[in-house]
């Protein structure tokens, strides 16, 4: 990667942070409806991970998907417009917060039923294997998803069929409000891959550089025809599970301790310490990101609602 690529990743993380902060504000103002799951604290995970993908690699994730959408190259204005349910949103206002996708950017959603997108990810990989595209499917999911049947069916199939899929567990320590050790037979999620004979590793998800290295190594292995790989990325969400989370399950000092490990600060320090960027350059990126989000909100607010007569569009192709 060149210097500008490193700075671009910083930009993406800051854009995600500002987008999420703004989303929380708009949610409280009643401008965003439904559920809203923020990615704040986990930005280094998808930013580092997706920075290693090639255009032919598919990305699929769960419902905490705004950050992933940004990393896949969807403009913040289209994400914001989707959050506001507008016709200009990335899913035309039909999907909302949990269902962002952009096929042209090889981003396959945004899936809101825990674990249910894992078999679909296996299927995307079946498609690539069948058509010999050379693409890898990167499938992200939370620790909570590893306790549901779909996970086990999909992971097993991927190994039996030697599918080109990179399984990425974002372990943020809680499935909604239930701690990993209260829900999972093993607290080390990567151990579950061992049971399927799938190679695995674990990396610190607060450090983008470490995530990138681990992801690059993993994706190279999968691309090299070695079958699936399982990467556990430990991370933490600084906000509640969703906007309606009373957060009775964790103590403020635990949250504060993690917040001291802010992935954006860690990466910023890295860029400054390695002379990749000056403080001024980072400040400039932050100013631009704020500008971008401001513009995104304006765009979203000024965008039209989906037309009432479009209600029945896209139920069927034919």
């Amino acid at each position: 990667m060149e210097k500008q690529d490193y700075l671009e990743l910083y930009r993406q993380m800051v854009v995600i942070r500002r987008l999420e902060e703004k989303s929380a504000e708009l949610y409280q103002q009643g401008k965003i409806g439904g559920f809203l799951h923020l990615y704040i604290g986990q930005e280094a995970v998808s930013t580092g991970l997706i920075s290693t993908r090639r255009p032919e690699d598919r990305v699929i994730t769960a419902y905490r998907d705004h950050g992933v959408a940004i990393n896949c190259g969807i403009p913040a204005r289209e994400v914001m417009a989707e959050l506001l349910g507008k016709a200009t949103g990335v899913a035309g206002g039909r999907g909302g917060s949990m269902h962002m996708a952009d096929v042209n950017r090889n981003f396959w959603g945004g899936h809101a039923i825990v674990g249910a997108h894992l078999p679909i990810a296996a299927g995307l990989a079946i498609g690539d294997q069948y058509q010999e595209t050379g693409g890898v499917t990167i499938c992200m999911f939370g620790d909570g998803a590893t306790n549901i049947g779909y996970f086990h069916e999909a992971i097993n199939l991927s190994k039996v069929w030697h599918l080109p899929v990179l399984w990425v567990c974002e372990n943020n320590l809680y499935g909604m409000g239930t701690a990993v050790n209260r829900a999972s037979a093993v607290s080390s999620i990567q151990q579950k891959a061992r049971g399927f004979g799938i190679p695995h590793s674990k990396v610190d998800g607060m450090d983008l550089i470490k995530v990138r290295e681990a992801a690059q190594n993993a994706i190279d292995l999968v691309r090299g025809g070695n079958g699936p790989y399982f990467l556990e990325i430990s991370t933490y969400r600084f906000r509640g599970h969703s906007m309606g989370d009373p957060e009775r399950y964790r103590k403020p000092d635990e949250v504060q301790k993690w917040q001291e490990n802010d992935p954006i600060c860690i990466y910023g320090e890295y860029l400054v310490n390695t002379s990749m960027a000056s403080r001024d350059e980072l400040n400039e990126i932050e100013t631009q990101a704020e500008e971008e989000i401001k513009e995104a909100v304006e765009f979203a607010e000024q965008s039209p609602e989906p037309a009432p007569d479009s209600l029945f569009d896209h139920i069927y192709v034919e």
């Binding site: 679909i120 990810a121 296996a122 299927g123 079946i126 690539d128 069948y130």
Partner: peptide
């Protein structure tokens, strides 16, 4: 689920 994913790839 696998068939859905494969169908999405064409």
């Amino acid at each position: 689920g696998g068939a859905i994913g494969a169908a999405l790839t064409g």
